[in-house]
């Protein structure tokens, strides 16, 4: 359960950005969470609800977009979305791959109230 420390990092980023934009409130927060990010979306939601009390985001709605694992084969160039965790190319079975998506853990955007 390291989600609480991830959410603590999130609030640091949120509060810093809100300050830069001179926002009074944060009303909406969107995260992108890859299937291999190591974070559990449901636990992030719980941690967010615990953390947001008495902050600039106490009314904020959290949305989490789950991102599946997408790989590209370095040999044949095929891009595959993997539903299992056998990491080989969907076409030629090569294991020489690059991860395109699925490991990210990003604050994508926020909605702010600005006076």
């Amino acid at each position: 359960m390291h989600e609480l420390s991830l959410i603590a990092n999130l609030f640091e980023i949120m509060e810093q950005k809100a300050k830069q934009k001179k926002a009074k409130k944060i009303t909406y927060v969107k995260l992108k969470v890859g299937v291999l990010s190591g974070a559990v979306p449901e636990l992030l939601e719980t941690a967010f609800d615990i953390y947001k009390k008495d902050t600039i985001a106490d009314q904020a709605k959290l949305e989490i977009e789950k991102v599946p694992l997408k790989i590209r084969c370095k040999e044949c160039g095929t891009e595959t979305i993997k539903s299992d965790l056998v990491l080989n190319c969907g076409k030629c079975r090569s294991t020489d791959l690059e991860n395109l998506e699925g490991t990210e853990l990003y604050l994508e955007k926020m909605e702010l109230e600005i006076e």
Binding site: E12, K17, L31, Y106, K109, M110, E111
Partner: peptide
């Protein structure tokens, strides 16, 4: 009060990285 959507794209593990 006006509402504004801002794109951020920051890694939650960015400071650790």
């Amino acid at each position: 009060m006006k509402k504004k959507e801002v794109m951020i794209l920051e890694d939650l593990l960015g400071s650790n990285k």
